[in-house]
Nucleic acid binder design. Sequence first.
DNA 1: CTGAGCGTTCAGAATATTCTAAACGCTCAG
DNA 2: CTGAGCGTTTAGAATATTCTGAACGCTCAG
Lengths: 182, 182
Amino acid sequence: MDRATAIFVDGIGAAAATSGILTQLQGRIFALLYLQPRALALEEIAAELQQSKSNISVTIRGLVEWHLVRLTPVGGSRKDHYEAATNFWRVMQEVMERRFRWNLRQALAAAAEAERALEQGARGSDAPSRETAAFITGRLLGLKLFFTAVDAAIGAFTQGKVVDGEALRNVVPLLAPATKRR
Amino acid sequence: MDRATAIFVDGIGAAAATSGILTQLQGRIFALLYLQPRALALEEIAAELQQSKSNISVTIRGLVEWHLVRLTPVGGSRKDHYEAATNFWRVMQEVMERRFRWNLRQALAAAAEAERALEQGARGSDAPSRETAAFITGRLLGLKLFFTAVDAAIGAFTQGKVVDGEALRNVVPLLAPATKRR
DNA sequence: CTGAGCGTTCAGAATATTCTAAACGCTCAG
DNA sequence: CTGAGCGTTTAGAATATTCTGAACGCTCAG
């Protein structure tokens, strides 16, 4: 591996490690492939990055799932050859949909579940007072409003539409029921 | 802690754990505070979540840094009391700027460094051929174009401006120099 | 058939992260 | 002053993650 590639591999590896989306090794694999004019065999990747074949095998799967790397047939070889994808927009869509929006919905689901528990268990032993319940409901609604708006914004964005940041920002003052003061 | 809060704490904890931004415990702390009508003392939080004070102390700092939690003085007590912030837009700005954009720039810096190494070490022993160097330069440029565009888009968004997804998407076909085929 | 050449699985080693509890040091009431 | 009541630091325990190498099983050339 030439010096420029080594530097790039290290740098992207570091960036990936803190991204919360890829691991350092995934970043390194992608960086290596991205600067190669030809597809590399699993074995070559392992050798370049000084990792075991099994580790590369497992780790590269995630990259394929994010559409960052493609498995391409190379004539005359039975080995799996991988090459970097260059359609970053596609990758971004994937991340937005499968990670960010999925995460938002997870939070929204938590709020919905809590809401339900609040209604049902209104007369449990540890049940909150009517007043407290109202406060909680308000907070849950606030979260729901904002997260739903963000979800919609991301949806619009990944479809290549125009996203109005101002509109989202304006959701804020609507919620935020003040905390009780002493 | 009432049942609804417990469910919310678990759900948000799970969401946070996979978010890549907060840890599970940070999610749990925030969720707990968010449904409280009053600020809680460090000790209370530790008790509710069944964690040591020291762990809460360290973990909650991250939440304060993201502006998800505020340290609020409570009259008549020397203890630190925390309450959830409700300005999600502010938090989002913070995350966009300090995590996403910072990460993009890290990647851009890696590309720039590689570029420099390519120029300098043009005659090193492991130096790539002129042809390969040209290929690498092309790839680095492609990454730079896309990442710079995303960076600008996020910048616009966090300032509440209108973001054009279509424009970003159109950056794609400009780059993507084809991989050599056999 | 059959075995060489692959990628994958898996058990456990290596490493990193998270968590605890004790020690510490600051602050302020007395 | 001084010590009770705090949050923080820290060393190490507990736990989770990452990585390896051997074993496995598939495929295909011979």
